[in-house]
């Protein structure tokens, strides 16, 4: 199966600004695994990540406390099977769903990333309210999304949504990014 190309819902890898450092990037190829504690279990201590937080593991997996009792694992590599095998060691205490194909994932990176998002999302993106590592859900451009702030050298937000909304959400983000210099080709114009 490795020879079969994985197709994401977004036709470009990334869009950049011309003079200011801002990038919108498709990361839908990431492995995405959803883990939920079954009834009566408490897993937050076990994973070391509470609801609202995220932690980058040494293997490159970002563990996000997406909702109470629910965690999403993101990894840039195609490691779904091995990751699921690892998580299956928790046995009946958890429910595991592979969302790699089910969610589009993209990032907005740059110091104006928060300003870009506040055009289309009614969340307080100040550092105090959304610090590095914050994991939360919100409506972005009228699409239900999971967001994680996972700064690199600059501010970086990961956004994931149901796959079928992926292209639309990418266009919405691109449109909002125009104000901050993002160059958007006509085929990705929202209007």
């Amino acid at each position: 199966m490795s020879s079969i190309p994985f197709r994401t819902p977004i036709p470009v890898e990334a869009l950049q600004s011309d003079d200011r450092p801002l990038e919108l990037r498709d990361r839908s190829t990431y492995t995405k695994i959803l883990l939920r504690e079954r009834k009566g279990e408490d897993f937050s201590g076990e994973l070391g990540v509470k609801y609202g937080e995220s932690k980058l593991r040494t293997d490159g997996t970002l563990v996000c406390g997406s909702r109470p009792g629910e965690w999403t694992f993101y990894n840039p590599s195609a490691v779904a099977n091995s990751l699921i095998q690892t998580l299956e060691t928790y046995g009946d205490r958890v429910a595991i769903t592979n969302l790699t194909h089910g969610r589009a994932l993209m990032s907005v990176e740059g110091n104006s990333a928060g300003s870009l998002l506040e055009k289309i999302c009614n969340i307080d993106f100040s550092d105090a309210m959304v610090p590095d590592g914050a994991s939360f859900s919100a409506s972005v451009g009228a699409v239900s999304c999971d967001l994680v702030r996972a700064d690199s050298d600059q501010v970086l937000f990961l956004l994931s949504c149901e796959r079928s909304f992926g292209l639309y959400l990418f266009k919405v983000l691109a449109d909002a990014g125009k104000e901050f210099g993002l160059i958007v080709p006509p085929e990705l114009d929202l209007h």
């Binding site: 959803l34 939920r36 079954r38 009834k39 009566g40 429910a95 769903t97 969302l99 790699t100 194909h101 089910g102 969610r103 149901e162 796959r163 079928s164 909304f165």
Partner: peptide, 14 residues
Amino acid sequence: NDWDVCITPVTGGL
């Protein structure tokens, strides 16, 4: 709320 059921929509993923 004491039932053991986890619900995940997977419409676009499949």
